[in-house]
Design a protein around this nucleic acid. Sequence first.
DNA 1: ATATTTGCAAAGGCTTTGCAACCCC
DNA 2: GGGGTTGCAAAGCCTTTGCAAATAT
Lengths: 143, 143
Amino acid sequence: MSSVSALQQTLAKRSYSLTRPRRLVFEALDSGQPRTMRELCQQLQTKVDRASVYRTVKLFSDLGVITRLQIGWKYKLELSDNFSHHHHHFNCQKCGALINLPESPELEAYISNLAGQSGVTPLEHQLEIQGLCATCTADVSHE
Amino acid sequence: MSSVSALQQTLAKRSYSLTRPRRLVFEALDSGQPRTMRELCQQLQTKVDRASVYRTVKLFSDLGVITRLQIGWKYKLELSDNFSHHHHHFNCQKCGALINLPESPELEAYISNLAGQSGVTPLEHQLEIQGLCATCTADVSHE
DNA sequence: ATATTTGCAAAGGCTTTGCAACCCC
DNA sequence: GGGGTTGCAAAGCCTTTGCAAATAT
């Protein structure tokens, strides 16, 4: 529950309160995979109104609590780096699996270097890789 | 016009024809910055019906002619690597500028290495960086 | 006690679809 | 000429908004 108290602090810092619906949205995202707005609403169906889920997602996004990922043509929501670990995503084009890739300080350094070369100040970034997951790679080579 | 003939070939390969609306959508994207669906529709307003723009965008996407970028909470469309050069994007959080970052073979190598460590086969990727552009970085330090 | 937040319902946008007319090969 | 495509209009979603009731501090 320590992550809920971190959320509490983040909200308080901007004079927002930690209400039941907000806690429920946070907890839904805190466990498991990134999910679509639809999935999130369905999961909270009987507990939180759709409009409140939308309002909460927007608020959390403004506060940097959640991040929006582009997965193919849809987007998914997950907790931001402040509430989980920084990582990147791999999406299998065949079976749809979504895999978290391990952190790589080397890559991070290179990314910020690349941005620096253009004179800009990098603050955040997302990397999404598509291709075939290990299982599907094996399947294809056996065909 | 050589890029239009490349499009022609891509379409023909899957038995689609190069029609006037498709050519117009392609040409609109071929020049200038990535744009939103709304901008694309407005630009083609008098020439192509909105429904056809949507159908064409979906088709082009299936054929790998265009890519969808996530810019903050909205998405934008641009020609894919096959029809332009592979590059990444920087988005200024203050003024909204969208800047293309130079290609970097080293970065590409890191990325494919990262994917390889997880046993997956990387085929495509997108990197989006947010922060402050050069001008806004200067502005902030003068404040 | 009071300002914030929620649920509900309705409105507003964006995207897709059915179908007759039209165009590309 | 004929099947793939388009335009139009209507339907379907997704998301936002107004407002009275409920809630947090």
